[in-house]
Structures are given as C-alpha cells and as structure tokens.
Write a protein that binds this DNA or RNA. Structure first.
Length: 502
RNA sequence: GGUCGGAUGGCCGAGAGGCUAGGCAAGGCUCUGCAAAAGCUUCCACAGCGGUUCGAAUCCGCUUCCGACCUCCA
C-alpha cells in the first residue's frame, strides 16, 4: 500500500478559488506542468521561489509514492519584449545586445539556471522541453485551432478568436474576470489594428525580414506566440488533460488564461484539473521584478554582494526562508528575516544531526505511554500539514516541535525510553524524510565534513578533553576560542563534546 | 479607473468562529569550570468602526492604508 492511499491532499485551485481534494486522473500517477523561465537573462529570485515551491510539491507527491511526470519548459523563443505584437523577441534582442547567436544566449542562461536550481537543491524535472524544439507541434496545434474555427489569419499571423471561445466557456475565469470587464480595460495599443478584437492574441506571428528566430509554416515564415508552447508541450507530454498546472501568480491573467483558451480551442477541454499559483517575492513590500530593477541575483545573495544585503545567505538558508512562508503568500525579503531563518535552519539541522546518535538509556517501552502517543501525534501532523495545500510553514513548525523532543532526549531532559521501539524508528524515518526528501534541505552545516576533518576534530577535542580533565581551563578555552574564530562551534554536554560548523 | 488579494505580538510568518502556531529577538529558571547548546518558562497579537453570534483575529458591512493584475515578468 502506497502512502498516498493513506493521505488525502487538498489543494487550492485558482480555477475554482477553493481548496479541493486532489484526485489524479489516473490513480497513482500525477502529471504536473510548471511554466519555466525565459532564458535571456540570469534567473532572479522570484523565479527561484516559484520553482522551489513546485519542487517541494513534486518531492512530496513522490514521497507519497505517486509516479510523477513533472514537465517544466524552457522558453527560448517567441517571448516578446514590450507591448503588443510589435515588440522584439527577448532572446533575439539579448543576442543582438551581446552580439552573439540566439542559441548562445539560450545556452548560457539555461546552464546558469540549472546551476542555480542545483544550488537550491531543486530536483530536475522529468522533462524540460524547449519552445524551439517543438515548433512542429505548435504549428500543428495552430492548424487545429484554425480548423476548429477559433483562429483566423491576417497577413501571415494567426490570431485566436477570444469572442468565439467565450461562447464555449468563460474566458477570464482563471483570474475571475468577465469578458466585458476585460474589454473595458483594454488599452489602445499601436499595431493591434489588424486584430478583430483587442483581446485576441497571436498563435503564430509573421516574421519580419530582419527577425532572427523564424521558421517556415503554412502561413509563411514566422514564429510561435509565447503562450502556445506551453499548450503544445503540455499536451504532448501530459495529454490533453492532466492533473496540475502551476506557475507564478502573475502568469494567471494572461499567459495561463490564454493557455486554457488554446486548449479549449484545440480540444474543447480544460487542460489542467488543478491550477496552482505561487505568490510574489517582494522587497520592501513591492514585487521583486526584473523591470523594477529591485531584484537580487542568486549569486549576489549567496555572496552577500549587494548593497541591500548585510551578509551572505547560503542557498539552504534562502530555501528554508522561502518554505517558512506558504507558497500562496507573498514573502518579503529583509536581512532581519533572513537572519532569523538562518538561525532557525541551523537549529533544525542540529536536531537532525543528533537523531542518529540517540539511543535509550535502558530499553524502549513495550506498551503505549503518554510520550509515545504525543510523538506519534507530531509525526502524523507533518503529513496533515503537507496535505493541507502543501503548508510548509506549518510543517516546519511541527518539525521544530519534534526537534525539541530530539534535543530533550539527547540531553536526557526527557526519557527516550518512554518511546516504543517502533515509534523511535518511525521518528527517524519521518523526521529525515520530511527534512531531506520533502523539504529538500541539505545539511549544509555539515558540508565541509570529510574523513580528514573528522579525524582532526577528534584529535583536537581529545587534547582539549585532557586539558579539561586537568582543569587546565586556559588551554581548553584557547582551543575553543580558536575554533570559534574558524567558524566551528564547540558545545560541552554531559555526554561529551560536540562540534559543528557555523 | 476596473478586477483580485492583503493588513496578525519587537521582527518574520501560520491559522481562519470556541482549542499552544512556529522561528528570531528579549526576560527568568535549570544544567554548566566558564561559555555555548539544550530543556522549562514569561512576553497572551490579530488596521479602525459598526453588525451577526452564547462566543470573532476568523463571518457580514463600511472606513483607512498596502499590494498584484489590466504592457514584459515566476
């Protein structure tokens, strides 16, 4: 029996604006699509937050035993700079600015993106398709939409007919908007004259002669509209209908709304059962965004090399910081908050390190005790919290409760022997599963651990133990102070001396 | 302007009609050669004004502030 058969997940569906019980289309399998980055610049932290949120969902679903196919695209064409249809392709523009091939831009920033996600310990998705690698699929989908009567061609560009689609289903549903509201707020933009209606959007665009990234199509030379790649690729790898579609909240009103439009126009089906949206990262209460220029690059954060940063923050500190807020809430970046997260993360990992060293003074309980019941309740709660729309902050709160238990057992402030043997095994399994497998936290505080370091530390601490036995406090304190200066903290406990980095 | 979402203790952040959030910071106690760590403990918050209710941070109105989207952004 898989864990998922014992756990009922509820998740907040943007489409219905309520929490719903998660039931995959195919029992035991989950198809998840997340809108990935446009690779024309360094990823910034807002993107990272979104991908870390979905990484935890992916990890948790896998932990529960689901077979998950996680598809996250790389946008390397068709994403426009500026307003309307006359903007320049982002990748092409960057290529022009850096005087290199578009594919060089794509390569450079894709590699950089992967590197950063690896630093954050995010698992790679199952499939990471690119827009340029799926031009044929996008042309096919456009043709199908035209055949179905929801697309029309004007001078080599194919538009999606939003008015007609709205007869089929409520077009603005995902962002809670009605078509007339959308129209009343449409701005008059240059270059939109050829569309029948301002809300119509391009499926395929005619390329100007100077355009670098372009392909042949039934309508002449052109390139796909930005929204189309996600529809075409999710359909190819996950089917016409799949379970979860995710992305940043800012994608909901336009990009995801149009993805739904394309799928409805092509297949007459809502592509995803559950739409999940992560909220924005803010700095001083304002959305962190590329265009506002208030974003830190991940490496600036890790190095502390940004005027707004008082110190470096490690990838795991940042990951932990993100997970201490729910994915649907905004998170505000500040030095104070990050420093608090850093200490909390270390506290949690210190307990994690103690866990394998625990053993009961005498023997385990053979029947139920109050302590045994209390601990089992905490372990159950970890799952209950994750099941509740992947509530990582609550889960972490429970993990801190468990950490306090572990600390108390270790310092013999509470008797480990009050647990039953099976409960102790469960404690070890659940605590490390939650921290390592589900939350994806690496034990950074032990990162420099190696045979040599361990050996040296044992030697040093043995010398110090001798000094202490002789009440040679001077030597003892010199050793401890020097180690502290090196970033190694030494803690003398009843059961001996322990050390760790940081 | 339209639509949507927020305002929680010194700070960050969960929760969502009665039941401890949690982390960080601060105070006290225990332990300790000293320290650190740890455990216990104190600090009982929900923007304002009305209303519903036996009971509201949580529901309903109004007010004030803030943000997001409506152009590109995760």
């Amino acid at each position: 029996m898989s864990l998922y058969q014992q756990q009922e997940i509820k998740l907040y569906n943007t489409l219905t604006r309520q929490k719903e019980v998660f039931r995959p289309l195919v029992a035991g399998k989950v198809g998840m699509y997340v809108c990935g980055p446009t690779v024309y610049q360094n990823v910034h932290l807002g993107n990272c937050r979104t991908f870390i949120s979905f990484d935890v969902m992916y990890r948790y679903l896998k932990h529960l035993g689901y077979q998950v196919r996680y598809v996250r695209n790389i946008t390397d064409a068709g994403h426009m700079v500026g307003d309307g249809d006359e903007g320049e392709d982002k990748v092409a523009k960057q290529a022009r600015l850096e005087q290199v091939e578009p594919m060089e831009i794509v390569q450079q920033y894709t590699v950089g993106f992967h590197h950063v996600m690896e630093q954050f310990n995010a698992l790679p998705p199952s499939i990471e398709p690119t827009a340029t690698g799926h031009i044929v699929e996008q042309i096919d989908m456009t043709q199908q939409i035209v055949e179905n009567g929801y697309g029309y061609e004007i001078d080599g560009t194919i538009y999606c007919d939003v008015n007609r689609l709205n007869e089929l289903y409520p077009y603005g549903q995902l962002s809670g908007r009605k078509l007339e509201d959308l129209y009343s707020n449409t701005r008059e933009l240059d270059g939109q004259d050829q569309k029948r209606n301002p809300l119509d959007f391009a499926l395929w665009k005619k390329a100007k002669p100077e355009h670098i990234q372009k392909w042949n199509s039934p309508w002449g030379t052109g390139f796909p509209g930005w929204h189309l790649e996600c529809s075409a690729m999710s359909q190819k790898y996950l089917g016409e209908q799949f379970d979860i579609h995710g992305g940043g909240l800012d994608l909901a009103p336009t990009h995801h709304t149009n993805e739904i439009a394309q799928s409805m126009a092509c297949c007459g089906k809502q592509p995803a059962q559950y739409w999940l949206h992560t909220n924005m990262l803010t700095v001083n209460g304002t959305k962190m965004s590329k265009s506002l220029g208030n974003s830190f690059l991940p490496h600036e954060l890790f190095a502390g090399s940004h005027p707004l940063l008082e110190q470096p923050y490690s990838p795991m500190t940042v990951r932990f910081f993100f997970l201490q807020a729910h994915y649907r809430s905004t998170v505000d970046f500040s030095n104070e908050a990050l420093q608090a997260a850093e200490k909390g993360y270390r506290r949690l990992m210190a307990a994690f390190q103690l866990l394998p060293k625990l053993s009961p003074a005498n023997s385990f309980a053979t029947s139920s005790t109050a302590e045994d019941v209390a601990l089992n309740a905490l372990l159950d709660e970890c799952y209950a919290c994750m099941n509740d729309d992947f509530n990582t902050p609550q889960t972490i709160a429970v993990l801190f409760g468990i950490a306090a238990k572990i600390n108390a057992y270790h310092h013999q402030q509470a008797p480990l022997g009050d647990l039953q043997s099976a409960t102790f095994e469960r404690l070890k399994m659940v605590f490390s599963s939650m921290i390592i497998d589900v939350l994806g936290l690496l034990d950074e505080t032990n990162a420099a651990d190696s045979g040599v370091t361990d050996g040296l530390m044992s030697l040093i601490l043995e010398i110090r133990a001798n000094a202490r036995a002789n009440k040679d406090w001077t030597t003892s304190d010199i050793i401890r102070n020097q180690l502290t200066a090196l970033g190694i903290s030494v803690k003398d406990g009843k059961e001996g001396t322990t050390w760790n980095l940081g």
